[in-house]
């Protein structure tokens, strides 16, 4: 299945080095991260040195080289969110999930990321959970949101 996906992404873009970022964006969207072997294929197909593919993948924040957790919690740390206490939200997840922004929990349930601005500044602090935006976030609300997901996991686990 993976190779068909990659085939679709590369279609019409082969031997066009300038498509590198666009291709990696699509890879990130489809796979959830940029697998190492995919980078090798992309390098060959677009005609870009592997070094350059690696550099691009490491330079832009949009790309992650490790698989991410089931739930991606993105905390906006833009100026407007910062003055309204986004640091408290980071403290909250750090305390609750015992991880640093950018990391994934051992059970693969959560990845926590920070983003410099999602452009919903009037509603800060903003947290994006799996692509859905929540405004006026408080540590309490965030704690309950995380509890909710963890609670579900407990219910599901007997069937797993």
């Amino acid at each position: 299945m993976n190779s068909t996906n990659l085939e679709t992404i590369l279609e019409g873009r082969r031997s066009q080095p300038h498509q590198l970022i666009e291709v990696l964006q699509d890879v990130q969207d489809v796979y959830g991260y940029i697998p190492k072997d995919v980078m090798g294929i992309v390098a060959k197909e677009l005609g870009v040195p592997l070094m350059e593919v690696f550099r691009v993948a490491k330079f832009y924040k949009a790309f992650t080289l490790k698989p991410r957790g089931k739930n991606v919690i993105t905390i906006c740390t833009g100026t407007a969110c910062h003055v309204r206490g986004s640091q408290l939200l980071i403290d909250q997840v750090q305390g609750q999930l015992r991880l640093k922004p950018g990391d994934t929990t051992k059970d693969g349930l959560f990845t926590v990321e920070c983003v410099n601005c999602v452009g919903a500044c009037a509603l800060g602090p903003v947290v994006v959970q799996n692509g859905s935006y929540s405004n006026h976030m408080t540590p309490g609300k965030l704690r309950r949101a995380i509890d909710k997901v963890q609670g579900k996991k407990k219910e599901e686990s007997p069937h797993a």
């Binding site: 040195p49 592997l50 070094m51 350059e52 690696f54 550099r55 490491k58 330079f59």
Partner: peptide, 14 residues
């Protein structure tokens, strides 16, 4: 990269 087209090392990260 320029003398050998080696591209074996590069600046990574920012």
């Amino acid at each position: 990269s320029e003398m050998w087209q080696g591209n074996a090392i590069g600046f990574v990260g920012r």
